[in-house]
């Protein structure tokens, strides 16, 4: 009798442990990604796959490294979205020396580094005070569909000295164009239906008003 009870208890315990174990899937610390799942309407989709990752298994080449600088003067401007720009730069010692030669020996320390952003579409510019510890900057321009160029310079004793000049970049549009080709006049019914769809898919509505 006692033996049967003992067997039953053990069996119950085994079943309990088995299912308990089955229920708690072990999750690795890393996830395997697939792209294309971050877009509109499906931001919440959790398509990241659980995945363990073993660093030790990777072959390491001791020589693998990226230099902190390349010894070239460079200011690169990129558009991040309709409102934001991104820029990174490198200034060589030669350029620094040139600046001191034009000004004074300790002018580098005594001057204020500036990012000057030129709005080439409007023909205006604005300045951002930066610091010497940075080598890149996110700029909130807030001007969609606008052509920009940047300069990195310094203000010393009230005077602005440009040092580096960037490429040109155009910020993306953020809204429906007011420009209409009379041969291809937009079909109102279609645009109205799109406005409805976009309101749900995008959470905000940038297309509902026709800007005739």
């Amino acid at each position: 009798m006692l033996v049967i009870v003992a067997i039953l208890v053990l069996l119950a315990l085994a079943i309990y442990l088995y299912y308990n174990f089955q229920g708690s899937a072990l999750r690795g610390p890393q996830h395997k990604p697939l792209r294309g799942n971050l877009g509109y309407g499906y931001e919440n989709m959790e398509l990241a796959e659980d995945y363990t990752f073993d660093l030790q298994r990777l072959r390491t080449e001791k020589e693998d490294f990226l230099p902190g600088s390349y010894g070239v003067d460079r200011l690169v401007l990129l558009a991040k979205d309709p409102d934001w720009l991104y820029t990174y730069w490198e200034i060589t010692e030669d350029t620094k020396k040139l600046f001191t030669e034009k000004t004074k020996e300790n002018a580098w320390q005594d001057s204020q580094p500036i990012l000057r952003i030129f709005d080439l579409t409007a023909g205006s510019h604005f300045d951002i005070k930066i610091n010497d510890e940075s080598d890149n900057w996110y700029i909130r321009a807030g001007r969609p569909n606008t052509k920009f160029r940047a300069e990195l310079g310094r203000v010393y004793e009230g005077k602005y000295y440009p040092l580096l000049r960037s490429n040109q970049v155009t910020s993306p549009a953020f809204g429906v164009s007011a420009e209409i080709d009379p041969e291809w006049a937009p079909i109102d019914e279609i645009w109205q239906s799109l406005a409805g769809t976009y309101k749900t898919a995008y959470g905000s509505n940038h297309l509902c008003k026709n800007e005739h």
Partner: peptide, 18 residues
């Protein structure tokens, strides 16, 4: 292109994205 790539085209496209 993504939908707004065409919706925000210049000049405005007659048929939207269709």
């Amino acid at each position: 292109v993504e939908s707004h790539g065409l919706l925000y085209a210049t000049p405005r496209p007659k048929y939207g994205i269709y």
